[in-house]
Design a protein around this nucleic acid. Structure first.
Lengths: 226, 226
DNA sequence: CGCCCTTTTGAAGAAAATCAAGGGCAGTGG
DNA sequence: CCACTGCCCTTGATTTTCTTCAAAAGGGCG
């Protein structure tokens, strides 16, 4: 149960043989817990470790000069971050724990060795990076309208949750607040709130506190252009 | 003169030995010209070739359902695109020629072989991807204000031009229109125009047609948070 | 119970889009 | 050589979208 989300994530990206997967499973992982609101990794930090999300939600974010926060991506169990380390580059952004997070840390040399031994694993990392990049580009593309943006973000999150094989993916209690959504999309929490209300009125979704149900998945995807 | 911008680009990212560079220089490149306004690569296309910009300016872009265009990055000589091919993934966006472009195409197998032979070249490609990703994230972060966005974009472009070793980088005739700037930042051309006027009034820049001079580099970077 | 965080809603204001029109400049063709 | 055409820049007036400021209500938790 522990790191299986990560293994599944990798395995879903490329065909890899049993040995390759076994080498991933036997990676020496040092795991620790980061409390909600604390940073898992800080901008400017030059780590020698790659972080694997084992439990909880986290966000990539940057702070602007006026103190406002921009979230540039969400990290769910199975996701990883800090591949910068392979290039010995400093982090250009921080990773903050949205909920309490259990994070596994693997030394970059261990990862490098596995990549060297199993090129398909290397390709999987490439794919994962590519997926991040595609997501970033998509966020730029949808960022012309609050309704589009929010719909798109919800679709993306629900798809990620689906990959984690939850039973129901159309009805979930999300750990993120409306402020998080706003920070992710460059909107104020107030405007997110109003737009969510509009989406309720449109019959797209239903919310009760932080529980969110998608009433019309097809239409939501359509609105989002997903 | 031909591919030197690309070689310089790679060489600037990692330490690589003479053999590695030589293998890059001797890559079999098939070059062709794409007319201004035409696509160098199209969204959804699954190419077996990597494109290297030899001459001209191009843009990564996506079309929205309403027909509007979002530019997600500019490509200058020395830049490359289509690394998707290494992962056998389809392009998630198109590449359009802003000016007439000379593009070199290298088969993915050739690139793969060089990466296999010279790991440092592989790291350089990683670095380049990382740089793209950082740029994408930065665009998201600055996208809260027209003045910031435009200033940031100008800084980024001038820095890229600087890396191409132009004599003057503070006074350049850019091939991009105000519409391009707007498409890149999610603004209308009209608003870009007004903001540029404001920047002129602030004494940051001076424009004459498409010729652009940065009057106060330090202050521009400061405004941009670059 | 009381506190803090989040959600919700209202009213006013700022930022950017839209609509519209005029002008400059370069290329094209008579 | 000059008129024509298309593209781009520029500016004004108006409308929409989003923010800001403010306040109240709900919900979880020590």
């Amino acid at each position: 149960m522990n790191d299986s989300a990560f293994i599944k994530n990798i395995a879903s990206l490329v065909d890899c043989n049993r040995d390759a997967l076994q080498s991933l499973r036997s990676m020496k992982i040092e795991s620790s817990t980061t409390g909600r609101g604390y940073d898992i990794s800080k901008s400017g930090y030059r780590s020698e470790f790659i972080c694997i999300m084992l439990e909880g939600w986290a966000a990539r974010y940057s702070l602007r000069s006026d103190g406002s926060r921009r979230i540039t991506g969400f990290l769910l169990p199975g996701d990883f971050c800090g591949i910068h380390a392979v290039c010995q580059s400093a982090m250009d952004h921080s990773i903050g724990a949205i909920t309490s997070c259990v994070v596994g840390r693997v030394h970059v040399n261990v990862v490098q060795k596995i990549i060297d031994d199993y090129p398909e694993i290397g390709r999987a990392f490439w794919q994962a990076k590519l997926r991040d990049e595609i997501s970033l580009r998509a966020w730029l593309v949808v960022a012309d309208d609050a309704l589009h943006s929010i719909s798109y973000l919800l679709c993306e999150i629900f798809e990620k949750l689906g990959a984690l094989k939850r039973k129901r993916t159309d009805f979930v209690t999300l750990p993120i607040t409306q402020t998080h959504i706003g920070d992710a999309l460059g909107l104020t929490a107030v405007h997110v709130n109003r737009t969510l209300r509009r989406m309720r009125e449109m019959g797209l979704i239903d919310t009760k506190g932080r529980a969110l149900r998608v009433l019309d998945v097809a239409r939501l995807k359509n609105v989002a252009g997903f």
